[in-house]
């Protein structure tokens, strides 16, 4: 009984944060292009993932820390980013008359949010707040693997599990009851580059995009890291040899 209640709680508090679920579900490991010592992002995959975010996720989920200018890192040119930004409208002002006005977005603008505020977001989503996705792959235990499997983890509830109204059953969500319905399905988007668009590929692409959004400096981190660490290693070897020579005639 307590367990079901706990599960319901976790589901209700959709934003939730539960690092430790009521029970532990093993999240399978996936292969990512950004894994490993010199892992990098796959630009084509990021662009596809952005398309998924734009067409599917952005209806409810914000990406608060991302500006249009950041999309140059996805491999778009400055011109393409300008064109992309101009598809959106943002509020600016006040103008000389003291009125707020709408204008086309510029590359330096943040991505507009789907809802003006959290209260409106909750009201539009049956009381559940769709969390911001800018840091999602870092803000959950399991990281990108968790996000990927969550997107695909929708199942029929096992016998005996009573779903709270409006909730879906998800194998990987802590407590299993999630307010988000299944969004990633086969063919939900059609990619411009003709890449496969079955649910697994779509989920993979959008997760990679979200990981870029959460950790945009990952490539710089890996490449700087390799150089710095190699430098320190060589220094360590030299220091060891110098130390050994200095101590040669000192019994210790």
């Amino acid at each position: 009984m307590k367990k079901i209640l706990l599960a319901a709680t976790a589901a209700f508090t959709f934003t939730a944060v539960s690092a430790q679920a009521a029970e532990h579900v093993e999240i399978p490991k996936e292969k990512w292009s950004f894994d490993g010592v010199l892992g990098t992002f796959d630009r084509a995959q990021l662009q596809r993932g952005f398309q998924v975010y734009k067409d599917v996720c952005s209806a409810c989920h914000s990406l608060n820390y991302i500006s249009f200018r950041n999309f140059e890192a996805l491999g778009y040119s400055e011109e393409q980013v300008k064109t992309l930004a101009a598809e959106y409208e943002v509020q600016d002002g006040p103008n000389d008359e003291g009125d707020m006005f709408k204008r086309k977005a510029k590359p330096s603008d943040r991505l507009p949010k789907p809802f003006a505020n959290d209260a409106l977001a909750r009201m539009s989503n049956g009381g559940a707040l769709p969390p911001d996705l800018s840091l999602m792959t870092k803000a959950r235990e399991g990281g990108p693997d968790y996000v990927y499997h969550l997107l695909l983890g929708y199942e029929e509830p096992p016998a005996g599990v009573q779903l709270v109204t409006g909730m879906s059953y998800n194998k990987y969500f802590p407590g299993h009851q999630i307010a988000m319905t299944k969004q990633i399905t086969d063919g939900v988007v059609t990619f411009a580059d003709g890449s496969p668009n079955d649910a697994a590929h779509v989920a993979k692409d959008v997760t990679a995009f979200l990981h870029w959004a959460a950790e945009p400096k990952l490539e710089a981190r890996h490449s700087t890291g390799l150089r710095v660490t190699l430098y320190a290693l060589i220094f360590a070897v030299l220091a060891f040899l110098a130390k050994r020579r200095m101590w040669k005639n000192i019994p210790h």
Binding site: V17, R140, H222, G225, L226, V228, T229, A232, A236, A239
Partner: peptide, 26 residues
Amino acid sequence: LAVFVVIYFTAVFWFPNALGEAVNYV
């Protein structure tokens, strides 16, 4: 120090969030 720095940098550059709590990115 040089040996230590290699280990420290390994964490900083490849496992920067391993010792942190995911929840703190909320």
